[in-house]
């Protein structure tokens, strides 16, 4: 089954619902090692992405959908996650440029481009306790599963599982750089909020495309 513009819009709507439900937990996680606003930012961003994509006409192709999501997310949010997710969506759009609908491989490519976009924008390395620790393993898991012949739903489910493990692993990282650097051991034991929200995003993408 191919993914139409409608499916993509529905996917953004599904992420928005999942993130809204997760908002308080994400703020609480961010309260421990950051500034307690991550749930708010993600909620604002995905609500804006949902509204902007929902407003698109039927003639919008997937690239247009991703770009609309990028722009809306960015302008609604700013913060750290704004440029990161905006870049993710723009890269996804660029990865599938010219296609009217997405096949399974296109979607996996788009997914990989998202992870790559987040890394390019934020320049974080794995192990620095950021959303990268969820997104990179997720993209890799999707690619491997697909290479091993998995369906798109199975590949995305594998991605979500990998994201979950990656996010969980951020507990063990003592932040050594940037914002939480001086925290030292006090940052141990806490999941990175951006990694936690990445799991929610990826899981809801997988669920939304589970019958694709």
């Amino acid at each position: 089954m191919t993914i139409s513009t409608d499916r993509l819009k529905a996917m953004f709507a599904a992420i928005a619902v999942a993130i809204e439900a997760d908002k308080d937990r994400l703020c609480a996680l961010d309260g421990v090692i950051g500034d307690a606003d991550h749930g708010i930012a993600m909620d604002l961003g995905f609500a804006a992405a949902r509204d902007a994509t929902a407003a698109l006409g039927d003639d919008a192709d997937p690239t247009v959908v991703f770009n609309a999501a990028a722009k809306a997310f960015l302008n609604a949010v700013g913060a750290s996650c704004g440029p990161l997710y905006a870049t993710a969506f723009m890269r996804a759009g660029a990865a599938v440029k010219g296609k009217a609908k997405l096949e399974a491989d296109d979607m996996v490519d788009a997914f990989a481009a998202m992870a790559k976009g987040i890394q390019d924008r934020g320049k974080a390395e794995p192990g620095e306790k950021t959303m990268i620790d969820a997104w990179l393993p997720a993209a890799e898991a999707a690619r491997q599963a697909r290479a091993a012949g998995a369906s798109l739903p199975a590949a995305l489910a594998a991605a979500a599982d990998a994201a979950e493990q990656g996010a969980e692993a951020t507990r063990n990282f003592a932040a050594t750089k940037g914002r939480a650097a001086r925290l030292g051991d006090r940052s141990l034991g806490h999941v990175d909020p951006g990694a936690a929200s990445a799991v929610t995003v990826i899981r809801s993408m997988a669920d939304s495309l589970a019958d694709a």
């Binding site: 500034d35 307690a36 914002r179 939480a180 001086r182």
Partner: peptide, 27 residues
Amino acid sequence: LPQTRRPNFEIGPDEMEIGMGIHGEPG
């Protein structure tokens, strides 16, 4: 935060935190 109206970090009744950031990032 005005959106959550919940304290953005926990601190004991006799405690202070040195070096805390201006968003409540731990010090």
